[in-house]
Simulated scan of single mutants.
Amino acid sequence: MIDPNTYKEVMASFPSGVTVVTTLDADRQIVGITASAFSALSLDPALVLFCPNYTSNTYPLLVKNKQFAIHLLAGEMQPHAFAFASKDKEKARLHEWELSELGNPLLKGATAIIECSLWREYEGGDHAIIVGEVQNLILPQEPVVPMIYHKGKMGALPAFC
């Protein structure tokens, strides 16, 4: 049997980017989750995946709506990451957003945004594996420093020298 604490410590040793995945609730307000379990999957068709916890209050809306936006967070977006990681039903109220042409809520300031439709969902233990088919890609006009998650901390990726 694998010790859960050791497993978490080992996984925390792998630096990853930080994303916020957003969709709309029944009142057409933004909801979302923070996910570091994110990856590109396929180029043809263009697919990405992320893994929300089944206990997330946003998870059922992502599946029901069948569309979402994945924001690759910039280093200064820690307040977004912490807010969307919470169970607070009002977690998005302080964050500026706009509706895309595809109907997804978009946060400002991300290093990139990937708009997706739900392609498949798979079981993954205590998390779902959500595969999104890429519908639109958004890059900022100016380069933005990305956020990383490592050993339980989030921050801007230092410059490579």
Results as ranks from 00 to 15, higher is better:
Phe68Pro: 07
Asn57Glu: 04
Leu73Pro: 05
Leu41His: 03
Cys51Asn: 02
Leu61Phe: 14
Ala12Ser: 15
Tyr54His: 15
Ala40Ile: 13
Ala46His: 11
Ser13Leu: 12
Phe14Lys: 02
Ala46Lys: 07
Lys66Asn: 08
Leu73Met: 10
Thr22His: 00
Val18Gly: 00
Thr34Tyr: 00
Thr23Ala: 09
Ile33Glu: 01
Ser56Thr: 05
Val31Ala: 07
Leu43Tyr: 11
Val48Leu: 15
Ile30Arg: 07
Leu62Thr: 01
Val20Phe: 00
Ala26Arg: 13
Ala12Cys: 07
Phe38Pro: 03
Phe14Ser: 04
Phe50Gln: 02
Tyr59Phe: 06
Pro52Ala: 01
Val21Glu: 00
Tyr54Ile: 14
Ala40Met: 09
Phe68Met: 12
Val31His: 11
Ile30Asn: 01
Val48His: 09
Ala74Asn: 08
Thr55Trp: 11
Leu43Lys: 11
Val63Arg: 11
Leu61Gly: 03
Pro45Ala: 05
Asp44Val: 08
Pro60Glu: 11
Ser39Ala: 15
Leu24Val: 10
Asn65Tyr: 12
Phe14Met: 06
Ala46Trp: 10
Leu73Gln: 02
Tyr54Arg: 15
Tyr59His: 06
Leu61Met: 13
Ala69Arg: 10
His71Asn: 07
Leu24Cys: 12
Ser16Tyr: 15
Leu43Arg: 12
Asn57Ala: 08
